[in-house]
Design a protein around this nucleic acid. Sequence first.
DNA 1: GGCATATCGATATGCTTTTATCGATATATC
DNA 2: GATATATCGATAAAAGCATATCGATATGCC
Lengths: 211, 211
Amino acid sequence: MLEKISLQTLQRLPVYLELLRQDAASDNISANRIAEELGLTEIQVRKDLAAVSDAGRPKKGFVVTDLIADLERALGYDNADDAVLVGAGRLGRALLSYAGFQRYGLNIVAGFDTNPRAWGQDEVSGKMIYAMDKLDDLCRRLSVHMGIITVPAPVAQCVCDELVGAGCRAIWNFAPTHIRAPGNILIKNENMASSLALISHHLRRNLEEEA
Amino acid sequence: MLEKISLQTLQRLPVYLELLRQDAASDNISANRIAEELGLTEIQVRKDLAAVSDAGRPKKGFVVTDLIADLERALGYDNADDAVLVGAGRLGRALLSYAGFQRYGLNIVAGFDTNPRAWGQDEVSGKMIYAMDKLDDLCRRLSVHMGIITVPAPVAQCVCDELVGAGCRAIWNFAPTHIRAPGNILIKNENMASSLALISHHLRRNLEEEA
DNA sequence: GGCATATCGATATGCTTTTATCGATATATC
DNA sequence: GATATATCGATAAAAGCATATCGATATGCC
C-alpha cells in the first residue's frame, strides 16, 4: 500500500490529519466537507485518502477515528524519527524548542554548534547542545538518520557532508543555499525564497489588476 | 513575458539566482553547468531561464550579469515587498532578525503581538513590535499588502482575518494549521509537516531496503 | 575564410497529477 | 421491505510539467 503514494498526495496527508485532529468531535466526516475546509476538490480528497485508508462508507463518509489511525500509520507517526540539529542560532533554537514536532513524529535529540557559548543545556528547550566533534559518535550510538541544518549558507555544505559522514540518510536544510549529497541521501531544502517568489508574484499581479 | 511562468518554474528561479550570486566571478555559465550544480537536467534549466531571459548565446552560455538582472526583475527584487509579522515568539523574532530576506526582496517593517512584554523595540532585530490594535492603521498608512503569521495554531485564523481586514492580499502562514481567506487573497502555508512527511517516507523506504 | 563544436531554442513525446464522469453501495425514510 | 439519496470508488479525460530529440547559431581553431 505504501508504494503507490504520490509525492503530492504524501504532502497533503499531514494536512488532512491536522484537520481531523482539530475536529475529532464528530464521528464521521465526508470527503466533501474536508475539501471545503481545505479549499480542495472532493475528488482529490477521496483519491488521496483512498491511498491510505478504506474507512469510507457510502452515505456516512469516513469514520474519523479510523481515518486518523490510518493517516498516522501511513505517515509513520507511530514510531517517531530521531534527528539532530546543527546550528544553534535563532532559527535553530526556535526549532529545538518547538513542541509541535512531537505531533508530527519528529524527535530532535540534540543540537550542535561550533560556538562554545552555545554549548550546554539550552534554556528554552531543555535540550543539550554539543560541540561538533561529538556529532559522529552521538549519531552512530543513537542510530540517528536525519539531520536538520540551521547554519549560515557558507557552511551548510560542509555541515551536510559531516552529517552524511555520521550516517544521516536525510537532510532537512533551512540554510538559504542549495546543498548536494550522494544520490541515496535525500535533501529537502526548506527554501523560503521559493515561497516568497510565489507570494510576491501573486501580489504584483493582484495589484496590477486593480490599476 | 511574466504571464506564462509556471508555478514550478517560479519556485526554481530564486534557486538559480542564489547560485549565480555566489558564483558571480565567471563571466559566462552554461545551462549544463547550472544543472549539474543543482542536480537538475539541463533541458529544464534552459526552459526555466528562457521564460525570463534571452541572455543565452550558443557556444558561450549565459552572460551571468545579464541573467542575474533578468532574474531579479522577474522576481521583483528591484522593489521589495513590505510585510508585517504577527506573533513575536521565538520563530517570529528569528524571522524578524533574519537579514537574508533583504536579498529576496522582502522587507518586514514591524512586528505585532498581544503580549505587552513583547512590545517595544526588539533587541536583536532592532524592529518595533506593536500591540495588535495598531495593526490596521500601520498597514494602511504604509500600504503593506503582505502579512506573516507566526502565532500558535489556535489563533492563526483570527490573525489572518485581521490582516485581510487591514488590506493584506497575501499571507505567509507559519502556524501549523490550515487557514482560509477569500478567493483573491493568497495563502501560502509554510507547512513543515508536509516536508517532514517526505523526509520520513524516504527514510523508512531507505532503511527498509537494507533490511 | 571554412569547418568543427558547444550551446541554445523550439517542437514533440511521455509522465505525473488533477479533474470529470459514472456506476456501486449502504443508510435512512416511508 | 422498497425506494430515494448521499457518498464512495473506479475508470476516463484533461492539464500541467518534465524529458527527449533535433535543427539553428555563434564561436574558436585550423
